Computed example of a mutant assay.
Amino acid sequence: MTLEILTSDDLRDVQHGFFTRKGGASSGVFQGLNCGYGSSDQKEIVTINRARVAQAMDVASAALVTIHQTHSADVEVIRSADQNTGPADAMVTDVPGLALGILTADCQPVLFADADAGVIGAAHAGWRGALDGILENTVQSMVDLGATREKISAVVGPSISQRAYEVGPEFLDSFLSDDPENSRFFIQGNGDRQMFDLPAYGLHRLQAAGVGSAGWIQHCTYSDPQRFFSYRRTTHEKEADYGRLISVIRL
């Protein structure tokens, strides 16, 4: 099956792609393009899937750079494909030929570019990372490499949508403690539950960081099992494990 790659006009000046699960070699609960070595899928199969992604991005497999994501606000500056990286949740580079890959399964994959400056970024922004500043830190790291804040385009890829993201009162309290105006990203659910709009919150943080444009690709990972892996859907369906989607950008 052919790979399915979603793109955004806001990033049309750089090669990029939000890959769905279609076209991969994995089977079972990982059916399709599982790119997560952190899953219990066969490592050899994940390697095949990543090689297909690299080929689609016109880079060697070794030039597809990923990091150990930990829901932090830490950003790595990538200078070479083989550099040692610590745990982090975003990467930036100004080196042509490197492809930055972010893995997700409901959290926001966010791709960034200032095409004029030749600086790109990629971030994994779940609720914790977004609240702690991963998006702003990515923007600042790009500026440190020569990007202009107002010329940065940022696009949020397939993520869990508000209609599928039920949270408890402690979750709401974390956001209200940070900023009472964050209440606008929640609507009432059943009982004491709230429904959280993660993509809208991500876009808010990007806009507050001063980027030139910020948008969401408008695909919900939870609601489309044929195209997307979803940690929350896997949990609800009591499956043993779940695949990881990959989103990639390169100069």
Results as ranks from 00 to 15, higher is better:
G146L: 09
P169C: 03
H219N: 15
V119N: 04
Q83N: 03
D82I: 12
D179N: 15
I152G: 02
L206I: 08
A117C: 12
D114V: 14
L135D: 02
E150A: 15
R149M: 05
Q69L: 14
I45A: 06
A88P: 04
R79G: 07
V46E: 06
I246V: 15
A105Y: 03
H236Q: 10
C35L: 12
F175Y: 12
G189S: 07
L176M: 12
V77K: 08
W127I: 00
C107G: 00
L131Y: 01
A99L: 11
A214R: 03
Y201K: 00
D178V: 13
E166C: 11
D89F: 07
S39H: 02
T148C: 09
T2V: 11
G97M: 13
H71N: 15
V14P: 04
S161R: 08
P169N: 02
S27T: 15
E4N: 10
A125T: 02
A209F: 08
D197N: 15
G129A: 06
L103W: 11
L176T: 13
R149A: 03
G146P: 13
D241M: 11
R12N: 06
A154L: 03
P199C: 04
V95W: 01
G86T: 11
Q55M: 10
G101K: 09
G118W: 09
V29A: 01
S80I: 07
I48T: 14
I102G: 00
L145N: 01
I120K: 04
L251W: 02
Y201H: 02
I120W: 07
V155H: 01
I134E: 01
H219I: 14
D179M: 09
A105L: 12
A125W: 07
A25L: 10
E239W: 05
L6Q: 00
D82F: 07
S8L: 11
R193C: 03
F185T: 05
T66M: 12
G146C: 11
S26T: 13
Q15C: 05
Q226K: 11
D58F: 09
A147I: 05
V155S: 01
H68D: 14
H16N: 02
H236W: 02
P180D: 05
G202E: 05
R205W: 02
A164F: 14
L251E: 04
L203R: 00
G17E: 09
A130P: 03
